[in-house]
Design a protein around this nucleic acid. Sequence first.
RNA 1: GGAGGGGUGGCCGAGUGGUCGAAGGCGGCGGUCUUGAAAACCGCUGAGGCGCAAGCCUCCAUGGGUUCGAAUCCCAUCCCCUCCGCCA
Length: 426
Amino acid sequence: MLPRELFRKEPERIREMLRARHTEADLDRLLEVDAAWREVLVRVEELKARRNAGSKEIGKLFAAGQREEAEARKAEMGALGEEIKALEARARELEAELAALELTIPNLFHESVPLGASEEDNRVERSWGEPPDFGFEPRAHWDLGPALGILDFERAAKVAGARFAVLRGAGAALERALITWMLDLHVREHGYTEVLVPYLVNSASLEGTGQLPKFADDLFKVEGHDLYLVPTAEVPVTNLHREEVLAGEELPLRYCAFTPCFRAEAGSYGKDVRGLIRQHQFHKVELVQIAHPEASWELLEELTGHAEAVLQGLGLPYRVVSLCSGDLGFSAARTYDLEVWLPGQQRYREISSCSNFADFQARRARIRFKSADGGKARLVHTLNGSGLAIGRTLVAVLENYQQRDGSVVVPEVLRPHMGGLEVIEP
RNA sequence: GGAGGGGUGGCCGAGUGGUCGAAGGCGGCGGUCUUGAAAACCGCUGAGGCGCAAGCCUCCAUGGGUUCGAAUCCCAUCCCCUCCGCCA
């Protein structure tokens, strides 16, 4: 959500942003409704001021025993009340429409964001590691996994449907090792506080971080309840501090959380239908920071580094990409994607997305801070990034550590978490 | 699921129809005192919106209603606590 002043004072800036994002929003209607709402509001408040003064007088007249005079005023105020009620209803209507429109406007983006229409225009910032040279034709994980007996898509389809997977034996252990190792790394090396949060969240939380109202189709909703399966830990973790005023000194708050993530993936039919890349349910270790506005851009670099440290620790080649204006998420002001090399597909694939939302989420979720030296409460900046998506990391490990005979070497850092296992064999 | 109790400012807590945006306390800020600090004492200290401005309007869980006037009365919903039931 953007500040209303901005719509009023600099609508052209917003129009320009919408163009650069290659997205549509009814800004004209928003401006029209805003003007109408303010007009009605001024009239309502005038009438209310009169009624308040009148009512106060009635109290005094009764106290003074002037009953007749008081009754006359009562009749007068009664008529006023009817008028107020009608105008107020109109004002409420307009404000509701304004609020709804406001939620459909995406965030302004940082000046460093490259302009462009699609992921073709994203900018590669740097890369790390070399794609391995196998000396044989590397296989994709959807061949490797089932052959090793650690991945079963068919039985997953039977118990749930498409876009689900069953991990088995060393596969399940590998997933679990990745989760534990990543959490430990962020907690012990990077100074994050681990939190374990609800996997079902209410609609207020989803509005706070920007998934609702625009992206309801991407979510799984629990029938008969105001509850949704979390699409990412970003939602419960950022909303931990919704409607709070934090102490400036304790910023930044750094949280990491492991959660399953559930996504309906509506509109991605036919995309990544094979393998673990795009699932209705996957695991993710998420990093969330709640920051002082002056520190957030630097913290985005830092947080991205924390996610990179995971890939480096696992020895997985990757590159860092700046999302262009057209590819940027609705709430993000700037995003770095980490893309890991997948030998089975001979391409880089997104494995982490690290964003600064500036005050966009904070305004929706009313997360503010106050400095010890007084002053007004100000909006915080929020950031988050995957550190990392576990399923895709498992894919990357299988494909990058495969051997000619179809076995997979376990990355060294994970071995202590897998009972010392060094190689996954059929 | 059943019965009962409750949701008030950064926090705790009083307030059952008008003078209440709300006592008191804690915390915070400023001051007096002090070499400095603590203690003590004094003062200040909620948020949002509209308006060029003076100023006005909202906000006591949320949404409706009654009334000239609602934190206070009525209805609905949500959340928390206690007990009972069920249950990993």
